[in-house]
């Protein structure tokens, strides 16, 4: 087991190097440069000012030198400084945005699973009844409705018309002076709508998955056996069937882990949530290379780690993988 683990970890190094190379190339292949984005179409900017800024960012050096410089820093866990006028360290920019994106995504993910599983089970056990059809229509509406449109309608209803919930942002102005419970309550109220909208859209996929997985299991012999033994339907479904039906969903949950640090631009913009999605989008649009590459590298690293953890878990569960090489 230890050698397997070591082998897998060593494999990550060339893989990561390849990722840095591809990331760097792709980012630099995009037309336009950070300098243009800041200074183009400005009559007060001369050629010299542009050259000055290029030099300041080190863009006047050959590409391979820039790459070596960047990777060299990366090895020392330094993501460099942003190419926007603030010139702040990339890590600082990511750090101030990561917590909110991470917590929002985790809550939304829990909510998705928490809702999708019962909905899927209900649809499966009531197959082809009106309930099943109703659920199908409901989740597909969620799937089909554009996020921004739904978000605006909800904002208008709850924020403007009824005044129950704040419209956007994370805090009410002046919430700094509240006590801790009231501060948290204020923040929770701000998060209700964004989380609702974020989860609603992905309900369809997840609950459909659950439904089909459940149906698959229900049709199997051991369920028939359980029923034949005279077990009550509740026990058959929730004890015997559910466990097996949940397995594919757990794999699905594993896949969503790297996605936790990514945010959705549309939804973050609409709700004015200062998260990773907006940071990434703005960086791409302004060709802020270090920030773009920094976020991509973190994402890639998380994906690799996620895969590693999944594989290790499989290995723990399945001796064939552990010993490296099928049923020899």
């Amino acid at each position: 087991m230890a050698t397997y683990l070591l082998k897998r970890i060593l494999m990550l190094i060339p893989l990561m190097l390849g990722i840095t190379l591809i990331t760097f190339t792709v980012v630099h292949l995009a037309p336009g440069e950070p300098v243009e984005m800041q200074m183009a179409m400005n009559p007060k900017v001369g050629k010299e000012a542009r050259e000055r800024l290029r030099k300041f960012y080190g863009l006047d050096r050959p590409l391979h030198v820039q790459y070596a410089d960047w990777v060299g820093k990366l090895v020392r866990l330094d993501l460099g400084r942003s190419f926007s006028p603030d010139n702040r360290p990339v890590t600082a920019k990511i750090r101030e945005r990561l917590p909110i994106t991470l917590s929002l995504n985790i809550i939304a993910l829990l909510l998705e699973f928490g809702l999708a599983i019962p909905i899927g089970i209900m649809a499966a056990t009531h197959r082809d009844t009106w309930l099943d059809k109703g659920i199908t229509v409901f989740v597909f509406i969620g799937f089909a409705v554009p996020t921004f449109w739904l978000a605006l309608l909800l904002m208008y209803l709850f924020g403007v018309k009824l005044g129950w919930l704040p419209i956007s942002g994370l805090h009410t102005l002046g919430s700094d002076s509240y006590g801790i419970p009231r501060y948290l309550w204020d923040m929770a109220k701000h998060l209700v709508m964004p989380i609702m909208v974020a989860s609603f859209g992905s309900l369809a996929g997840m609950s459909r998955y659950m439904r089909s997985s459940m149906l698959n299991v229900i049709g199997q012999d051991y369920i028939t056996t359980a029923r034949a033994k005279g077990l009550p339907e509740r026990v058959v479904i929730y004890k015997h069937a559910l466990r097996n039906a949940l397995l594919p969903l757990i794999t699905l949950a594993g896949f969503s882990i790297p996605g936790l640090i990514g945010g959705s631009v549309i939804f973050e913009s609409i709700y004015s949530i200062p998260g990773m999605g907006q940071l990434f989008y703005q960086s791409v649009m302004s060709r802020d290379y270090p920030v773009v590459m920094g976020i991509l590298i973190i994402g890639a690293l998380l994906t690799l780690i996620g895969n590693l953890v999944a594989d290790v878990c499989y290995a723990l569960a399945d001796p064939r993988i552990r010993h490296g090489g099928g049923a020899q």
């Binding site: 419209i167 956007s168 913009s269």
Partner: peptide, 20 residues
Amino acid sequence: YIYRIIPDTSTMYMELKAGA
């Protein structure tokens, strides 16, 4: 004097109507 960053103009308009 407070500048609130609201990237979406429709959202900003609703915030205006809500008095924020």
